[in-house]
Amino acid sequence: MTRTERRDLRNGLLFASPYIIGFLTFTFYPFAASVYYSFCSFNAIDPPVWTGLSNYRQMMSDGYLHTSLYNTFYYTIGSVPIGIALSILLAVFLNQKLRGMAAYRTIFFLPTIVPVVATSVLWLWVFNAESGLLNGVLRQIGVEWLLSQFGYGLPNWLSDENWSMPSLILMSFWGVGGAVVIFLAGLAEVPDSLYEVAEIDGAGPIRKFWNVTLPMITPTILFNLVMGLIGAFQYFTQVYIMTAGTGGPANSTLVYALYLYQKAFMYLNMGYASAMGWMLFAMVLALTVGVMYSSKRWVHYHGE
C-alpha cells in the first residue's frame, strides 16, 4: 500500500466514521437484537425469555396477522398502481408548456408536505358519514338521490367495514403530488426528437404517449413503484389517528404496521413484534427484488 493509499484509507474511514458508528449502533445492533428478540417472549420490563420458534409458530396461526397482511396487500394493490397511473396522467398534462403550470404543480404537491397528523385529522372530518364534507357534497350533487333509486345509501366510509379501506386508499391519492414532480422530471428528459420522429410517422397524441412517453419514463416508474411499495408496507400514522389506534371496524383497517405497534406497545409483546418486523422485512425484500428482477423486461434505460 502506498502512502497515498494509506492516507486515503485513513481519511475515507475518518470521514465516513459518523455513519459507520451510527450504522453499527442504530441499525446493525437493533437489527441483530431484533433477531434475538424474535425468538423470545419479551415484555420490555423483565429480561427476554428464550422461547425458540414459538413466535413464528404463533404467527402461522394468528388470524389477525393474516387479516393485517391481507389489509396491507389490499392497501398496497389499491393505492400504488392507481396512484402511479394518476400521477403519470397529471404529469403528462402538466408537461405541456402551459401558463400557470408552476401554480398547478404547487397545488398538487402541497398535500405531500403537510404534516400527516393534520391531514389525518382533516380527512377524518371529510369522511364523517353524517356531517362530513364528502357525503355533504355527494348529497348536494344528487348522488344520494341517484343511489337511492337503486336502493342504496351513501357509504358510511370509515365506519363501514367494506368502505373503510377504500376510504384510506382514496385518501392516499391525495398525496400523489410527490410522484407527479418526479415524473415531470422524467418527462423533461425525453428528447423532443423522438416525438418529432413519431409525428412524422403520423402518430396521434395517444400513440405518442404509448410508444414514446411511456417507454421512456419506465426508469422513473420503477423508482416510484419501489418507493410506493416500501411506503405502503409501512403505512401507519394515518390509520393510527383515524381509527384511534384500533384498526376498526372489525379489523378492516388493521394494517401490518399498526398490528405490530399494538402488539409491541399496547399488549407489550415485544418478541412477537420483532418476529413480525422480520417477516415484513423478508416480504419487502422479496417484493423489491422481484420488481427489480422483472424490471429488466420492461424498463428501458436511455442510451441503450
Binding site: 356531517s131 362530513g132 345509501g153 365506519s159
Partner: peptide, 16 residues
Amino acid sequence: KDVAQAFYNGFSAGGA
C-alpha cells in the same frame, strides 16, 4: 345493516 351503522355513527362520529 346500513341503517344500524348510520345510527351508530351518530354517536361515535365527530364528538357528537
